[in-house]
Design a protein around this nucleic acid. Structure first.
Lengths: 332, 332
DNA sequence: TTGAAAGCGCTAACAC
DNA sequence: GTGTTAGCGCTTTCAA
């Protein structure tokens, strides 16, 4: 093509790949020809020849959930720095769909895969990927442990949030939990249990396990607060359920923090807009994405010892008015 | 590879591509060998040979904005149906970055590109893409008109929202507008102007142009309501500025709908959680994504007349308590 | 219905 | 430093 610059294809290739040993004059001629002809290197052919791509797959279950949105942001920022493009795949929390996403990435010879797994076991999806494709698990672990994992200390976050309510003097602290068959659901529930048991014994009537979705949170809250001996506080274990629970409290006419103290999970952009503003267990989600991408980039570069790593980030309790009987002082 | 099934590569290829003229017995043998060897077709080589990919590029400016999130969802749902994977590119509202995204898609030989353009002129980016790559513009048009476009009737949405406030008896209806150099900012402002001028004359003191961001909305609202003759209502022209404006109103101690009537733009998941719930001009964003993907899929299939099409979807005013002096009746 | 062979656009050995 | 050439793994004529 651009040999119409009077050189061989090899030289053009060398210019394109910034190899130093090209004569400056010839390099100029090549560059000029490329510009003149509007030539663009074919990445498909390049990938085939090099037997590698610069594409990552990112498999998540719900693009509309702000948690994943922040995660994508983090992943994408680092991916761009490292020169990778990101294919977004939607597993919709379904193991079959997840498997198809992974098969697709295997066929496309993705350079790496980041996944927030719906599957319980790593073996359920690992064989689908060519062994050469590195995988980083995000936020949820699997039963097999021989894979990189980036996560948030959910147990700690739930513990801190629950304990905060107890310290504020709430006596019957309820928990709207995710399903126990997910690692996030389970570990957050364990944090709640630990805090509650430190202060006495756990009351099963104060616990509702639901599905991490908005309607689930709504129903669980209605159910809890209509019971004969309702709670005086509640911690809700993710952002969507928190939305549902807050709607329920409003519908029931219960006021925060007097009638009920509330702690949500995940930072919500509008948490501070509520009256009173909502106390939440904030997760460093963008950082989670960055860390996952960091790890994957290093795996792709091959400059890491072989054994799998786990990176754990700390959540941060942000106390606002919804959980403090004496109104929290304003922080600047 | 799978010729260890005793047939030629050509036959294997035919099986893989579901071509009918293969002997059933041989087909079985091939399938069996594929399963046994765990073979996966190399999509990179396939794409090279076929001179086409099954990948779309989706270029947006802010993954964390729920508007784009819903858009992505729509695009991805249809893309999956049509057998395309979606690469997510981040232009960050920057024309240079946008250009690089487009160049990347050109190199990767994407089958099509969906873009919510930061550039004003189509000519700014069209030459970057091989003329064979179809493009669909989303939500914002460019000065050149020879390209497919999917949009929402923003003028109408802003008009409906403003007129609603006037009909509720508000006399000084302010507008927190996006920048006039964007199509969405401009057309929404024009809708506002039309409604206001129908009822009298426009008062420039009631208009603030800012940047579609949360802090911008906050500052604009503070500025408006601290002025000597403040408005008694405001329409805010996108979701992020609405968040900022609501924070400002709360900080100023102004109550909706009494002190001030408020209409937001874009549906917000938590609009109904506020007290009173927020009236908004809802946009069918997921449908916008679906429509864009539909159009692109048809362009990729080549089964369309050549001339560019524009698809316009209608917004829908959702009246809640923040804009109705007599409390809106509850809808089921 | 099947197989042999060409070739997609590029990079990397190798020879000069 | 530079050119020649082989092939990456697939699909697709073409001939059998």
């Amino acid at each position: 093509v651009a040999e119409a610059a009077g050189v061989s294809v090899a030289t053009v290739s060398r210019v394109l790949n910034h190899q130093p040993q090209v004569d400056p004059a010839r390099r100029e001629r090549v560059l000029e020809a490329i510009a003149r002809l509007g030539y663009r290197r074919d990445a498909v052919a390049r990938n085939l020849r090099r037997r590698s791509t610069r594409v990552w797959g990112l498999v998540i279950s719900d693009i509309q959930n702000p948690f994943f949105t922040a995660l994508i942001r983090g992943v994408q920022d680092r991916a761009e720095q490292e020169g990778f493009a990101v294919i977004l795949l939607n597993s919709d929390e379904d193991t079959d769909r997840e498997r198809r996403c992974l098969e697709l990435m295997a066929e496309e010879r993705a350079a790496g895969v980041l996944i927030s797994p719906a599957s319980e076991t790593e073996s359920a999806f690992r064989p689908l990927l060519d062994p050469a494709i590195p995988v980083v698990l995000i936020d949820r672990s699997t039963t097999d442990r021989d894979v990189d994992l980036v996560r948030i200390d959910n147990e700690r976050g739930a513990y801190d949030g629950t304990r905060h309510l107890l310290e504020e003097g709430y006596r019957r602290v309820a928990c709207i939990s995710g399903p126990l068959h997910t690692t996030t659901g389970r570990t957050r529930f364990e944090g709640y249990r630990r805090a509650v048991e430190e202060a006495g014994t756990i009351d099963p009537d104060l616990v509702r396990h639901t599905d991490f979705k908005t309607p689930g949170g709504h129903e669980a809250a209605i159910d809890l607060f209509r019971s004969p001996s309702p709670p005086d506080a509640v911690i809700v274990m993710n952002n969507l359920m928190t939305e549902g629970a807050l709607t329920a409290l409003r519908d029931l006419g219960l006021a925060m923090p007097g009638d009920v103290g509330v702690v949500g999970f995940d930072e919500l952009s509008w948490a501070a807009l509520l009256d009173p503003p909502l106390t939440t267990v904030g997760q460093p989600v963008r950082e989670l994405g960055l860390a996952a991408a960091d790890l994957l980039a290093r795996r792709c570069a091959g400059d890491m010892e072989d054994h799998p790593r786990t990176v754990t980030l700390a959540p941060r309790l942000v106390v606002r008015g919804s959980s403090t009987r004496v109104r929290a002082p304003h922080h600047r």
